[in-house]
Amino acid sequence: MYTVAITPISVATAAVYGATGQINGFTFGLFLVSAIAVIAWINLSNDVFDSETGIDQNKAHSVVNLTGNKALVFWLSNACLLVGIGGIGAIAYFQQDWRVLGAIALACALGYTYQGPPFRLGYQGLGELICLITFGPLTFLAVCYSQASPPSPTLWGASLFVGISTAIILFCSHFHQVEDDLAAGKRSPIVRLGTAKGSTVLAVSTVSLYILTPLFILCGYFSPWTLLLFLTVPVAYELVNHVGQYHNQPDKVRNCKFIAVKLHFWTGLCLSLGLIL
């Protein structure tokens, strides 16, 4: 799951390299470590917040359920956040550009509103939008500033692509837990749409990745090399087909989010290679 941290940073850095022909390797490495720490905070704190509503009672891999120690997980998550923000703060200091820290601080604040009280916007079905904004434009803007590079159409295009592919992962996580979401009062997109319409929305969202890429090439934002993305069509088909078949069978559809993670990783890798080449 930590490719969710690695992919946006890698694609954004590749976009900067494609535009400028140079990157700061130390800054890239520090940003990567910091991003992983921030994702650890999001995952651990979400387990803590979900344990308070009872929505995770059937979630075997909840760290709170595994440890039985909510307080420990809460403070461990805060420690991860401090490490992540500390690393980003160091980058901002080295670059003497505090917009780096500002963009990530805003992304973290939005991330908190997803499950954190009193907001819990994820319970209103807004999680995917938050995901798209934080892992897309905000993270890409921070990476851009960290590399002392001005934002470009290429960067914004890549940020939209990764924002959508990341939101797809979250969207897929709802299919198997409709009953738990309803019991906890969570109005996830799948609860609102139903699993059948949700599978259609997933198919359209996935196909959009393969429409945006040639469109951005025609606009001159992406290099033709980014057509490498089409090597990932089999993974996209696997995801759409799997959810289309089993959308209303929780035991069979529950692994679709891991297929979505695989799609996110491979599309990110191909897009990065295309931007670099």
Rank of each mutant, 00 (worst) to 15 (best):
F216S: 05
T134V: 13
F26G: 04
S51F: 03
P8K: 01
Y2V: 03
N78C: 07
G25D: 06
I190S: 07
F31L: 15
Q95T: 07
A184M: 14
I259L: 14
W225D: 10
F258A: 05
A12C: 09
S208D: 08
A183E: 13
I168K: 08
N255T: 13
K262R: 14
V4N: 09
G68R: 01
A196E: 15
I276C: 12
Q124N: 10
P214Y: 01
I169L: 15
I169P: 11
R192T: 12
P8C: 07
A35R: 04
A260N: 11
V233S: 05
G116D: 11
A5E: 15
V162W: 14
D180M: 02
C256E: 10
L132A: 13
G194D: 07
S223W: 12
S165W: 06
Q95R: 14
K252N: 04
A37P: 10
R120P: 11
N24P: 03
S152W: 02
A60E: 15
S173G: 01
A92E: 07
Q147L: 07
I6L: 15
N255K: 14
P137N: 02
Q96A: 08
P117D: 14
G89H: 03
F135K: 00
L277V: 07
V253F: 06
N58Y: 09
F26E: 14
S146Y: 00
A92W: 01
L30R: 02
T200W: 11
L227A: 11
L44N: 10
R254T: 11
A196D: 12
W41V: 02
N78I: 03
I55G: 00
D56R: 01
N248I: 06
A107G: 10
V178P: 06
L271F: 01
N248R: 09
G268D: 08
L32M: 15
G89L: 09
A158W: 04
G84K: 01
Q147T: 03
P151Y: 00
D180T: 00
S159L: 08
F171T: 03
L126P: 08
I91K: 12
P214G: 03
R99V: 05
P250C: 06
G25Y: 10
V235L: 15
P117E: 14
W41L: 09
G21A: 09
L269F: 11
C144T: 15
L129W: 04
R120D: 15
I36P: 10
Y123I: 04
C131T: 13
D251L: 09
L277A: 15
D180Y: 02
F135E: 02
Y2H: 13
S188V: 04
V240Y: 12
T166H: 12
V207N: 06
S208Y: 03
E179K: 12
E128W: 11
C144H: 00
S205W: 08
H264S: 05
L44G: 05
Y114W: 04
E179G: 05
N43M: 13
S45R: 04
V48D: 11
S146K: 00
T134F: 07
S272N: 06
C219I: 04
Y123G: 06
V64M: 02
Y93S: 12
V64L: 08
L81G: 02
I211Y: 14
D56L: 05
I6C: 06
T67K: 07
